[in-house]
Design a protein around this nucleic acid. Structure first.
Lengths: 187, 187
DNA sequence: GTAATTATTTATCTTATGATAAAGGATTGG
DNA sequence: CCAATCCTTTATCATAAGATAAATAATTAC
């Protein structure tokens, strides 16, 4: 739990009471590799913080498994397109390395926003920052060849290639596994 | 200005004082087609609301003009990767049809957050919603052929194809203008 | 209204990536 | 520790999209 509060401090300081209020609506979850932390079709009512492990958000498009994003230690995961709309998510969260996560109940969290503007501010900043990352990602996708995208990933997030099966990386890069393998062979 | 407050109401109600406070830090701007509302290299300190007209955010990648997104009436524009980080933006906002926009000073707006939690909440919701749109857009890009992306645009936002030069649409779709023309010829 | 500029289309050729199949490696469960 | 499964690579062929050039169409400025 302390790791979570330390993560929060990068965005915005919280009072002790606010930390306590968040602790009260949170719980620790341990989950093994290859399991879904949240299934497809479920409305997102939990914001997770990864203390240990690796996860991905994925979905199926025309029957093909597509990875939307990877998540590592010290990051927040949520299927925002469900969390912020209240609609069921077509995406799932899968654990790729045995994980310990903090689960924060989002409905209760949103209620805390009324009593603790500092908590609302904190999460505003967290999601603003996630929004910026997402906008930057689009820039990385538009108008780059598969090979350029692979090299960028190799350079910016070698962790992904070390800790995640390549078949998941391929769809993240928007290519087939076979193409990824071919690109990797080019050296 | 009333159009702006009406837009706000879709997200979260504001008290009269809060509306007044926002009005005080805002101004109306009229700007002609093909002009940059904000140039490349400028740190984003303004959030715009389009009352009338069309705009796009664009940047240069290896000397090529790339459109990140289009904006129409009744929407908020900001280069969030600069607004939320304080870093200069490599992107510009260009007007594509003579426009009237409301310019909200973001530094003053962020100060209002302290006195008016309702304003912080409103903009939190506005940007959460923009974040969701951006996440959904990635889904539309990953693993779709250029033709599928064109058809999706034709179906979901025919406005873009009616009101925007195709050369800007091509880079938005992540293809060359020549490819877009070829795809359009396929019927 | 006309010339000049800019936008769009069409054509040709090349190349990157998809689809499919199959072989080789690695991991996992009993 | 072995068998079964799953992951990754390699090979072949087909196709979508890039690059370039040039023709046509539309818009803009004078």
């Amino acid at each position: 739990m302390e790791a979570l509060f330390q993560y929060f401090r990068k965005f915005s300081p919280l009072s002790k009471e606010a930390e306590k209020a968040i602790a009260e609506i949170s719980s620790m979850v341990t989950i093994k590799k290859n399991n879904d932390l949240q299934p497809i079709g479920h409305t997102c009512k939990t914001i997770y913080f990864i203390k240990k492990g690796v996860a991905r958000i994925y979905y199926f498009k025309d029957g093909i498994d597509i990875t939307e994003r990877f998540f590592f230690e010290n990051s927040i995961i949520a299927r925002v397109e469900s969390l912020f709309t209240g609609k069921p998510s077509r995406k799932a969260i899968q654990i790729l390395e045995d994980a310990e996560v903090v689960a924060i109940n989002s409905n209760q969290l949103f209620k805390l926003y009324d009593d603790y503007p500092e908590i609302e501010r904190l999460f505003r900043k967290i999601f603003e920052s996630a929004y910026v990352e997402t906008v930057n990602r689009i820039e990385g996708i538009q108008f780059h060849s598969a090979e350029e995208r692979y090299n960028a990933l190799l350079h910016e997030a070698p962790d992904v290639l070390m800790r995640v099966p390549l078949k998941y990386v391929a769809s993240y890069l928007g290519i087939t596994q076979v193409s990824l393998s071919r690109i990797r062979g080019h050296r």
